[in-house]
Amino acid sequence: MYAQEVKSTGKGVKSLDEMEPLERAFQEKVNADIKIEPKDRMPDGYRKTLIRQISQHAHSEIVGQLPEGNWITRAPTLERKAILIAKVQDEAGHGLYLYCAAETLGISRDQMTEQLLSGKAKYSSIFNYPTLTWADIGAIGWLVDGAAIMNQVPLQRCSFGPYSRAMIRVCKEESFHQRQGYDIMMKLCDGTQAQKEMAQDALDRWWWPSLMMFGPSDAQSVHSAQSMAWKIKQDTNDELRQKFVDQTVPQAKYLSLTVPDPDLKWNEEKGGHDFGEVDWAEFFEVVAGNGPCNADRMAARRKAWSDGAWFRDGLMAHAQKKQTRNVAAE
């Protein structure tokens, strides 16, 4: 989801009997729900998979500031403005915890930033869609943060200690974000005709991209099994997507909004909704860099980084001068 394209490096899941002693000891620890900490021995594949997943997650938080930040200056009331600033600030904070968690695995924040800016590292496809109206801010909180929570609640039990602890903090804030998004939608749906239309339009545009957040269907997601064996991942993409649809459909109904899926219907037998097929061709295009805002998002991040070089260098230069002066004074 926030890390929807993580390819784990393991080649199929081995049974305990097939494993080397060290590998087996590690797997048994995971099976016993003992958290893996940064200094513990871990298979290379586990380390690499986690670095990719956590850094993708962090990059998603950082890039995720942009679509919502787009409406901070136009928020319709002072209260909404303050809430939105606080929310975007939380996202920057989540990025920071997550970069720190990834750093414990032996990669620096600068290296991760470099991977993002060079296009080598991915971030969630959702942030490559534009925020065209104020209702999009409501829809993002409601749907995008709602989908994020669905994925991140199980990640609180992830086998890697620092990631699991970061997720516990992140989840508390995300549930507040979702409520504020839904609150924006309620206000709009209770408002003028133009506001109601704005809300419906936002749902029409954000529904399918939100379902894409869970990543490709299990049938196409060949690397899920190893991540699940390592307890980096707890549920399959399709299970989470189903849960999200079942949770969200009644919320849309409460708002008197129509979910833009003609195939959506309640299936009594399975106790869940049937729903239409996500346009995976679109998903893969967006992931490949061809979504409506990929170029803008990356350009904004690159500009912030390159425009800020003098600032970072200036602070380093000052720190060095100070150190030299202190040494001279001794």
Binding site: G69, I85, A300
Partner: peptide, 21 residues
Amino acid sequence: SAWCGHAPVLEEDIALANVAL
């Protein structure tokens, strides 16, 4: 507040958001 997401370093994004708030 217009700097949110565009500051030279992540800590500045957070600090500027605080000031704006």
